[in-house]
Design a protein around this nucleic acid. Structure first.
Lengths: 252, 252
DNA sequence: TATACAAAATGACATTACGTCAGTTTCAAG
DNA sequence: CTTGAAACTGACGTAATGTCATTTTGTATA
């Protein structure tokens, strides 16, 4: 069990940052002293290492949080991913090196008209961004895959799960109608009710469904949702209307 | 002459970012159309490339601005620097690769007790930060060097410059006294007067002196000021007192 | 056991480098 | 001379910390 300063020292992550990660629930120390001092375990260190990598390839903290929290997470898988990423990065740097050399030499000779070389160098930076995107995508996909693997299981032995599937199916039918219509709002209300009463293995599924709803914007960029984009978007706006209406009802 | 969208396309820097750089005076397009559309020149592209690199190694935008604006700036020098940086980065990645391999293998065998390996991997990240620091430092130093190269020149043919040197010398003598004392404040006042009446080549020097004053905090971290740290710090606090007093005098 | 002092905590506000959006103006092409 | 794409200018928003002020906790020593 390590106290916060020690962890900071070992990993180079500032104390402030660790506390922030705790606050947003990204990395909560396994235990605390009576007085509330954070005590980090070995597993916490692993998680932190994960976080560092995911940050490096451009994930936002809340995205990282979602992915790490979703129980199924394999640290050794991730390490292999990291290794492969590094190798790609190496290649990229090699390209960068020759591009720079070219530019330097070109300058000596012509000193102008090297726009093309400049472009080359700068676009290699983008290359890097693309690389990050690629790895983000692959991490995402891996996770999605594991998620949907569970669905058939659920459907087979549980009436509740069947209703979920049904609800999504219904929603699908109304995709091109008004999301504030009573029919749609009823479906949403039912979904919200079910969400609240959910438990156990199913809870996990439903939470994920909700997480997906939340990160819809991001996922659109990646274009990899198993639920059709439009259904998700529709569900999203319908849900927002639902929440708003309920809030209004409450305040009266 | 390229319009903003084209530049964005070529370099992967967003349009918003380019406008931002213009706004803060970091990269103003060489020319504009009558209607105010930005037109970027070849030189602007070079500057942008510079900016990208300096950002990569961790400079803040306003630091970059200061360094690029200070007339003496050699693009080919910088390219060589970039090349050398890249090579170091490659080495770093190699280390990272073997550290990761070690970790992956270690996991298969013992599955615990790999704290040391984790630490290794994470500290390689810091290695990267250190590398950046190192290159920041070297860029800084190069610039400082060019700056102080000018001082003898100045002193030789200009009474004003001599007074500057003298003022700094005087300040040095009072370093361990009260910065709000009349003696010190008089020196500061004289400096401020001279700063305001400065012009031409000298102006450049004085501006730089002031820039240094401003970025004292940052430079302390780097620990590379040609003017002794304590003198600068002293000058800084004395100047702040001076400004405050003047403001009070005004408001009465 | 009391005391003192480093290190931890919490909370609030600041900062950097953009993104996003809204409303307006400019430009090039037909 | 119009018209649509692309540029412009604000103004406000955001993410991931940094910074600072104040309070608590843990431990080493008297």
């Amino acid at each position: 069990m390590l106290h916060i300063h020690k962890v900071s020292e070992m990993t180079g992550v500032t104390v402030r940052t660790l506390r922030h990660y705790d606050q947003i629930g990204l990395l909560q120390s396994t235990s605390k002293t009576e007085g509330g001092h954070r005590l980090y375990s070995n597993g916490d260190l692993k998680k932190l290492q994960q976080i560092q990598f995911m940050k490096k390839i451009g994930f936002r903290l809340n995205e990282i949080k979602n992915m790490l929290n979703s129980s199924d997470w394999d640290w050794s898988d991730s390490l292999r991913n990291q290794l492969s990423y590094i190798k790609q990065e190496q290649e990229n740097l090699n390209k960068m090196e020759s591009a720079l050399r070219e530019l330097i030499h070109g300058m000596a000779i012509e000193d102008e008209n090297n726009e093309i070389a400049i472009q080359k160098v700068m676009q290699l930076n983008n290359n890097n961004k693309e690389l990050q995107q690629k790895y983000r995508k692959s991490l995402f996909k891996e996770r999605e895959w594991k998620l949907w693997e569970k669905v058939p299981n659920m459907t087979s032995d549980n009436a509740d799960s069947l209703e979920w599937i049904a609800l999504i199916g219904q929603l699908k039918r109304y995709v091109h109608t008004d999301p504030s219509s009573p029919k749609v709002q009823n479906i949403i209300r039912r979904m919200e009710e079910k969400r609240l009463e959910a438990f156990d293995g199913e809870k996990e599924f439903i939470d994920k469904l909700w997480v997906m709803r939340m990160s819809e914007a991001e996922s659109e960029k990646l274009g990899l949702y198993p639920i059709d984009q439009d259904v998700l978007q529709f569900m999203n706006s319908a849900y927002e209307i639902f929440i708003k209406k309920r809030a209004e009802a409450h305040s009266e």
